Simulated scan of single mutants.
Amino acid sequence: MKKIFILEDLDCANCAAKIENGINELDCVNKASVTFMTKKLVLEADEDKMDKAIEEATKIVKKIEPDVVMKAK
């Protein structure tokens, strides 16, 4: 299952890379990619793990970039 999010107020390419790497380390995530130019996060996880993946991904985003808002596209 794949979900797309917009990372509003993301203004640091290095932070985007850190967010992507952090989310990819989660056990509940199959794959994650962050595109800094479009501020887009593509999150792939099994359907039964998607809610947990979104919750954990949000925590990582807030830890690295507290001002960024993760909104479903």
Rank of each mutant, 00 (worst) to 15 (best):
A53L: 00
E20V: 10
E44Q: 13
L7V: 05
E8C: 06
I54T: 01
V68N: 10
E47K: 10
K49F: 07
F36S: 07
K49L: 11
A32S: 08
C15T: 04
K40L: 15
A32L: 02
I19L: 04
A45T: 00
K18S: 13
K49A: 04
A45K: 05
K2W: 01
D48A: 14
L26R: 03
F36P: 04
A45I: 01
V68R: 03
M1N: 11
V29M: 07
M70L: 15
E56W: 00
V61F: 02
F36V: 07
K31I: 01
N30T: 06
K40Q: 14
E20N: 14
I54F: 02
E20R: 14
N14Q: 10
I23M: 03
K71D: 08
G22K: 04
D11S: 12
V34M: 01
T58N: 12
M37F: 12
I23N: 07
I19P: 13
A72F: 01
P66K: 03
L41Q: 08
L10A: 09
E25K: 15
G22C: 00
M70G: 07
F5S: 02
D11V: 01
A17I: 09
T35E: 10
E8G: 10
E56I: 01
K73Y: 14
D9W: 11
E8L: 11
L43M: 02
N30H: 10
D11E: 15
V61N: 14
K49D: 02
F5G: 02
A32R: 06
N24E: 08
N21T: 08
C28W: 01
K3M: 04
E55A: 06
P66W: 00
M50F: 03
K18F: 00
K39R: 15
K73C: 03
L41W: 15
K59A: 08
K2A: 02
N21M: 10
N14F: 13
K40V: 15
N14W: 15
K39M: 07
K63F: 10
I19W: 05
D48C: 05
N30S: 08
A32C: 03
K63Y: 14
K71S: 04
K18G: 04
E55H: 02
V68F: 09
M1S: 15
T38K: 09
S33Y: 13
A53C: 00
K73S: 12
